[in-house]
Amino acid sequence: MTGVNPEFVKRLEPLSADLGSACFNCGTCAAICPLISEHFPRKMIRYVQIGAQDRIMENARELWRCLHCGLCTQTCPRGANPGEVILTLKRYVTSVWRKS
């Protein structure tokens, strides 16, 4: 069971202007990503949308496999900027790791 948390996204707001809210979960980014298979990067965007902070932390290492090639952002049908979300999560995860 995954709990949803609408408050979580507010913690990310100071870190970024774009939190992928435009994403409608079509999966283009996950299929176009040349480096990581499975559901990345949509997985991260989805966890931001529902506020599943734990899931993000559990999978945080995936974030650093992203080389920011920009293909996901370029092909996103909704202009949701997945690359920017990954960058934001890197900042967030780093800040959490620093605190702990």
Binding site: N25, G27, T28, A30, A31, E38, T75
Partner: peptide
């Protein structure tokens, strides 16, 4: 349920469809 990300020419005239299997293993 997936938006197709890309198409490529495959073997013997086939077309390779790349998409995210959303409730399965992911990109395929």
């Amino acid at each position: 349920k997936a938006k197709v990300a890309s198409l490529d020419a495959g073997q013997g005239g086939a077309v390779t469809v790349r998409y995210e299997d959303q409730t399965g293993e992911g990109a395929t």
